[in-house]
């Protein structure tokens, strides 16, 4: 085990780096798409049921199938990391649209009414009242999406791009346990670290949400 780490640490670190990028980039893209879509679904309630159905269907597509089909749709190489990024972005959007809608719905109507009555315009209301109050709910969804992405990236290894997942395929092919254990431990650690980072961000962003119960 130590022997493996001593000789292969550059490769392991490279796999870890790729894993972080492949897991996080889709979270950022997914959030950027889910925020406006979720806002629209919040503003125009009739959009919400169809959007929810589409998200659920998308989320139900098996990840391996999506990794295989995407190159055909996008015209990319099978080994292109873009496939993984697009696929995971789709999952993230599917998860977060609902979260954004729920978050905006968690803003008490009395608060939005009062904010409007003291002179907020619609954009200011969204950016300075509704979104900040929705942050705890949105970040809760973001934690799920992030951890789930960390785990899904590994599946990409079956296609040859999978960050830490490459360690699993490597171990399996060589019938060698060390890379597999390293991959599992690093995946779990990565998920834990990213999760705590989001929790930390939430503590900084929403000091008000922890004072409710005296």
């Amino acid at each position: 085990m130590l022997q493996y780490l001593r000789t292969s640490s550059p490769a392991v670190l490279a796999a870890l780096g790729q894993h972080v990028v492949l897991a996080l980039l889709p979270v950022l893209i997914g959030l950027a798409v889910a925020l406006p879509v979720g806002y629209l679904a919040h503003r125009f309630r009739w959009l919400y049921p169809p959007l929810l159905t589409i998200s659920s269907v998308l989320y139900a597509v098996p990840s391996l199938a999506l990794f295989v089909v995407l190159p055909v749709i996008l015209g990319t190489q099978t080994l292109d990391p873009l496939n993984i990024v697009v696929a995971l972005s789709v999952y993230t959007v599917a998860l977060l649209v609902r979260t954004v809608v729920d978050g905006l719905a968690s803003v008490p109507p009395a608060v939005t009414a009062a904010a409007t009555a003291v002179g907020f315009r619609p954009l200011g209301l969204l950016l300075r009242v509704e979104l900040p109050i929705a942050v705890p709910v949105i970040l809760a969804g973001l934690r799920v999406a992030t951890v789930s992405n960390v785990s899904l990236v590994s599946v990409g290894a079956l296609l040859g791009v999978g960050g830490l997942g490459a360690l699993f395929t490597d171990g399996l092919q060589r019938d060698y346990l060390a890379p597999i254990i390293t991959g599992i431990v690093l995946s779990v650690l990565l998920a834990l670290v990213l999760d705590s980072v989001i929790v930390g961000v939430q503590r900084v962003l929403t000091p008000w949400s922890r004072v409710g119960e005296r």
Binding site: P108, A110, V111, A113, A114, A115, T116, A117, V118, G119, F120, R121, V129, P132, I133, T206, W208, S209
Partner: peptide, 22 residues
Amino acid sequence: PAELRRGIGYVIQTAGLLPHRT
């Protein structure tokens, strides 16, 4: 409407304060 409202003080039953601001 926004300018008009900024020039008129408004007090409501539930206070309607912004929970995320001090």
